[in-house]
C-alpha cells in the first residue's frame, strides 16, 4: 500500500517537475514567440487601413485592466475590433482600482483602464485618451427631474442645464478629487466650483424642492451642486442624499419623495427600460431614448453634460508626450 502510494506520488511529482522544467524553457520562448507575431503581423493589418508602415504604438505598449478585460466588448475585444489595436501584452489587474493606478505610475503598464472621472487621473496627472471612435456607452451625467416640477418651474430646468453646460470631464474629475482625496466637505467643494464656473444666479425661483442621491459620492457631489445652484436662484432645497441604489432612488423619484437626481444616461436608461439594449455610444441618441423611457414614469431628463463616468483608457503624461497621444485612435499610429 505504501509502495503504491509512494510510486503514484513520485510519478505525479516527476511529471509535474518535468512539466515545470520544460515549461521554464518553452514558457519563456513561447511567450516571446506569442508576443512577436502580433507585433509584426498586426500592424500590417492596420497599415492597410491606416496607410501606415511599421509597428503601431499600441504594439509597443502593455495594457492593464480587470482580469475579464480580454473577453469584454468594452475592453480589449472592443479595442481590437473598433480601433484595430493589438497591444504588446495584457496585464490582468483590477477594475479601475489601486493596482491599475500603481502599475501605471510604476511603469509596468503604459495604458490602463480606469473610470473616466476617477480622481486618480487628476491626482497622478494621467491623460485620459478620448474615445474618438465611440467604443463606450454614453454614460454622460444627466439630471432627472419630476415632470410636474419641471413644468411648474421652468427655472429649475434652466438652472440645471446651465450647470450641466459647464461640467466638463476635467471639472468632474477635479470635483471628485477635491471630495475623495483632498477631503474637502462636499458643500464647500460644490460652492467653490459654482463660484469658479460662475453660473448666473437669476433669482426668481420660489417653492421647495428635494434633491436626492444614491450612495455614490459623485452623484452626491452633483446633487449638492444642483441644490446650491437652485438655492442661489431662490428655491428652498431639501437634500436627501445617500438613499441607496437605483432600486431605491427611482421609486423615490416616481413617488415624489425626491424631485431631482443626477444620473448617467446609458446606465440609467438600461435600468429604466429593463436592459432593452437601447443605450448606445452616442450621448444625444441615448439621452433622447432616456427621455422617452422616463415619460410613462412622470419623469424627464434634462440636457446631458460633457462629463462621463464610464470606461476610460488612460496613459501617463510622459507616455502621452512621448507618442503624442490624445485619442485612443492615436495608438494605432506607427510607433516611429
Amino acid at each position: 500500500m505504501r509502495n503504491f502510494r509512494t510510486a503514484t506520488l513520485g510519478a505525479t511529482m516527476l511529471a509535474l517537475l518535468l512539466g515545470a522544467c520544460t515549461s521554464g524553457g518553452s514558457g519563456s520562448s513561447a511567450s516571446t514567440a506569442a508576443s512577436e507575431p502580433p507585433a509584426s503581423t498586426a500592424p500590417s493589418v492596420e497599415s492597410s487601413a491606416e496607410a501606415s508602415a511599421g509597428p503601431s504604438i499600441a504594439s509597443t505598449l502593455v495594457l492593464g485592466g480587470p482580469p475579464e478585460c480580454p473577453e469584454r466588448p468594452f475592453c480589449l475585444v472592443g479595442l481590437e475590433k473598433t480601433y484595430g489595436l493589438k497591444f504588446k501584452e495584457f496585464t490582468p489587474l483590477d477594475a479601475g482600482g489601486p493596482l491599475t493606478v500603481q502599475a501605471l505610475t510604476g511603469g509596468q503598464i503604459q495604458v490602463g483602464l480606469l473610470f473616466t472621472s476617477d480622481p486618480a487621473i487628476a491626482v497622478n496627472g494621467f491623460v485620459l485618451l478620448q474615445d474618438d471612435k465611440q467604443l463606450q456607452l454614453a454614460d454622460n451625467l444627466i439630471p432627472v427631474v419630476r415632470k410636474e416640477v419641471a413644468v411648474a418651474n421652468p427655472l429649475v430646468a434652466d438652472t440645471l442645464n446651465a450647470v450641466m453646460a459647464k461640467l466638463s470631464q476635467a471639472e468632474l474629475t477635479e470635483l471628485n478629487k477635491a471630495v475623495t482625496i483632498d477631503l474637502t466637505p462636499t458643500a464647500d467643494a460644490a460652492k467653490a466650483w459654482l463660484t469658479k464656473v460662475a453660473i448666473p444666479a437669476t433669482g426668481g425661483g420660489s417653492g421647495s424642492l428635494t434633491v436626492g442621491s444614491t450612495n455614490f459620492y459623485e452623484q452626491e457631489i452633483l446633487g449638492e451642486i444642483f441644490a446650491q445652484a437652485l438655492e442661489a436662484n431662490g428655491f428652498t432645497v431639501e437634500r436627501k442624499f445617500q438613499l441607496g441604489n437605483r432600486e431605491i432612488v427611482f421609486p423615490a423619484l416616481e413617488s415624489g419623495e425626491i424631485d431631482i437626481l443626477a444620473e448617467y444616461a446609458a446606465t440609467a436608461l438600461e435600468f429604466v427600460n429593463g436592459g432593452a439594449g437601447q443605450a448606445s455610444t452616442d450621448p444625444a441618441a441615448t439621452s433622447a431614448a432616456f427621455v422617452t423611457a422616463l415619460e410613462p414614469k412622470g419623469l424627464v431628463a434634462l440636457e446631458y453634460a460633457e462629463a462621463t463616468d464610464q470606461n476610460g483608457f488612460v496613459v501617463t503624461k510622459a507616455t502621452a508626450d512621448q507618442y503624442g497621444l490624445v485619442t485612443i485612435g492615436d495608438l494605432a499610429k506607427p510607433a516611429s
Partner: peptide
C-alpha cells in the same frame, strides 16, 4: 498552454 497566460508559463512563474 501557449504564451504568457498559458499553463507552462504560469507554472514557470510560480516555481520561479
Amino acid at each position: 498552454w501557449a504564451g504568457t497566460p498559458g499553463i507552462p508559463n504560469r507554472m514557470f512563474e510560480h516555481v520561479w
